[in-house]
């Protein structure tokens, strides 16, 4: 038998997936009820919180198992490749999730708004539905007369772009530190990356407040506001998750986990961070600048 093939570790029975399934059930039911009861009030959000709590507990225990197994040397190089490929495909699925919203943005901007303004063979669409409507982007006046203001790119968005780009660089330095077993710079650069991530999120909140209070740019302000908030909102949620991942990695680094040649969890978190960075660049160009 070919000795180059190490034994592939197949874990024994595990309770965590079924706990996670219950968590997902509570989250789905809780989220559904929360949304449905938004106006009437009701206890749905408690179900949601319970689900999230169970999910976090489950993830913590599941990853604990994985880390223990890894420490016992149960994972072969082949296993490592499975993790890497799995994470890559997960990130690909995230890319496709954002594609749906970018698709909506491009469609609204290139097709539906011009058509409502009478472009192509749609002169009568404009004439019959909203004859006073003019197609412009950003869509600050909707066909039914709602008005808003566009978010400029020069102020906070530009600063945020620089912050996120810098954070990718600091994370890269942290990775270099990891590979060269320089734990000091590793910790510093990790902490720096997390701080930058938190700064980004804080400034996003400031920007949202500015949008709501000064610009009248709200979630329901027509398709410009819709695409703006859903794209930046989902991106913000991903940054939040990425920051939490990096924070967990920093805690593990402080506890002495990882070695120069064995640090897949760190690398996965780093890939994820670079991914949200690239999404932001697309956002900055297509949502803010253009």
């Amino acid at each position: 038998m070919d000795k180059n093939y190490e034994k592939y570790y197949v874990p024994a029975q595990s309770p965590w997936p079924i706990v996670g399934a219950f968590a997902m059930f509570f989250i789905a039911v809780g989220a559904g009820l929360t949304v449905m009861q938004a106006s009437s009030g009701g206890g749905g959000h408690y179900v949601l919180y319970a689900g999230i709590a169970v999910l976090l507990f489950m993830l913590f225990r599941w990853f604990k198992n994985v880390i223990e197994e890894s420490d016992q040397g149960l994972y072969s190089a082949q296993m490592d490749r499975s993790f890497r490929q799995g994470m890559s495909w997960f990130i690909f699925s995230e890319v496709m999730f954002f594609m749906a919203f970018f698709g909506a943005l491009f469609y609204a901007r290139m097709l539906s708004v011009p058509w409502l303004g009478g472009a192509g063979n749609n002169a009568m669409t404009n004439e019959v539905l909203w004859p006073t409507f003019e197609a412009i982007w950003p869509l600050v006046t909707t066909p039914d007369g709602g008005t808003t203001q566009a978010m400029g790119w020069q102020g906070l968005p530009l600063i945020n772009t620089l912050i996120l780009l810098t954070s990718s660089v600091t994370l890269h330095f942290a990775h270099v530190g990891m590979e060269n077993n320089k734990r000091g710079p590793l910790k510093v650069f990790m902490a720096l990356t997390i701080v930058l991530g938190v700064c980004f999120l804080g400034l996003q909140v400031v920007e949202y407040m500015h949008a709501y209070q000064d610009l009248g740019l709200t979630l329901d302000a027509g398709v410009y506001g819709n695409t703006f908030f859903l794209l930046t909102g989902f991106h913000g949620m991903h940054v939040t998750l990425g920051t939490i991942l990096l924070l967990v990695m920093l805690i593990r680094i402080l506890k002495g986990h990882f070695s120069p040649d064995k640090h897949f969890a760190f690398q996965a978190a780093a890939w994820y961070w670079h991914f949200v960075d690239v999404v932001w660049l697309c956002l900055f160009v297509f949502v803010y600048v253009l």
């Binding site: 999730f97 594609m99 749906a100 909707t142 709602g146």
Partner: peptide
């Protein structure tokens, strides 16, 4: 994931007054 995006936009259109699929708001 694209299906997930589609149902999400249905959710916001129905419950959060977005207008992805409503011409009155430019969708």
């Amino acid at each position: 994931p694209v299906l997930a995006g589609a149902v999400t936009m249905v959710l916001t259109d129905k419950y959060f007054a977005t207008s992805f699929f409503d011409a009155a708001g430019g969708g």
